[in-house]
Design a protein around this nucleic acid. Structure first.
Lengths: 155, 155
DNA sequence: GTAATGATACTCGGATAAATACTGTCCGAGTAACGAGGG
DNA sequence: CCCTCGTTACTCGGACAGTATTTATCCGAGTATCATTAC
């Protein structure tokens, strides 16, 4: 169970975008330089956030990416699932119905207990991430962070 | 974030082993036939459980695998982490210290807020799985299950 | 009848290929800004 | 001085290789069992 490395990229990039002044945006090239990341691949990931409705993208000069919603409405869960997909990590393939020990279909009306427990754990993970918004993250940064971020991003 | 397919295999196999009479064991070939799984590869995964201390393996005739501890002491977490590894899915590579926007080392004494939140979520997932033992799973099965399992496994 | 011994068959164990998904890269389509020119 | 228009340069967007992890497989080392044989 491993999250893509790009998860860290987009989490930090989203935090960065949340520090911009309203109406402003940052290009993929700027963000890539800011964090020393491969630009084109980062673009691909940010596009996934656009498809998920977390960011909006504008082309042309002074274009780039910005948050599609207020920072308080964007949770870490939405960002993570945008790049990694929302599919549960444990996929029940119903092996209890295969092989020599196959259970009759009548005994499988209820979902497999193991699958249910794994789904519960996944839900606990999701709830934990859904409880944290970008606004919460910004609140834990020093008050001087946004100005610094904007400055370094432009230069 | 995806768990190996073999996770389902070992969870079901462990549940099966927990239904055997004390002192009895099942071979990888028996378990593979019981669930219609690729035998050699299943062996490899069960071996991982042995290395993790969840199962014990005995060679020779009437050998095979059995639980290394009482079912009540084996949690789903130990089984899952045995096959998938215990490494957290989110790996912080400290990109905040790289690139044009690199933070000075003095500001990075505390762990990154994002990494901390991701670690919290992972811990929530682990706690959820650690709260369920094989005994709990057996308790939710019909009372006739163990006898049926033993019968079909031998045949 | 009992115990020791040798052969046997069954078990796990590690080293070896194929497949899938993540990672990284390139070039093209589209668009907003900018500057020049005319009114 | 203001508006229109053409150019420009910058942006995202999708199609194309490289690499690592997962999946699957094979054959060899080791051992408890079973039959045989001697006592």
């Amino acid at each position: 169970m491993k999250l893509p490395v790009s998860t860290e990229w987009v989490l930090h990039c989203a935090t960065t975008l949340a520090q911009l002044e309203p109406g402003d945006s940052a290009s993929a090239a700027q963000l890539a330089a800011y964090y020393d990341l491969p630009g084109p691949y980062l673009t691909k990931q940010l596009k996934a956030l656009v498809n998920a409705g977390v960011l909006t993208a504008a082309t042309g000069p002074r274009g780039g990416f910005r948050l599609a919603h207020p920072a308080a409405e964007i949770t870490l869960l939405r960002i993570v699932e945008a790049v990694d997909g929302a599919a549960p990590p444990y996929e029940c393939r119903e092996i209890r119905q295969a092989g020599k020990g196959a259970l009759p279909a009548a005994d499988c009306r209820e979902t497999c207990v193991l699958a249910a427990k794994m789904a519960e754990a996944h839900q606990a993970w999701r709830s934990s991430l859904d409880a944290v918004s970008l606004a919460d993250i910004l609140g834990s940064l020093p008050a001087t962070a946004p100005a610094r971020t904007r400055s370094k991003l432009k230069g």
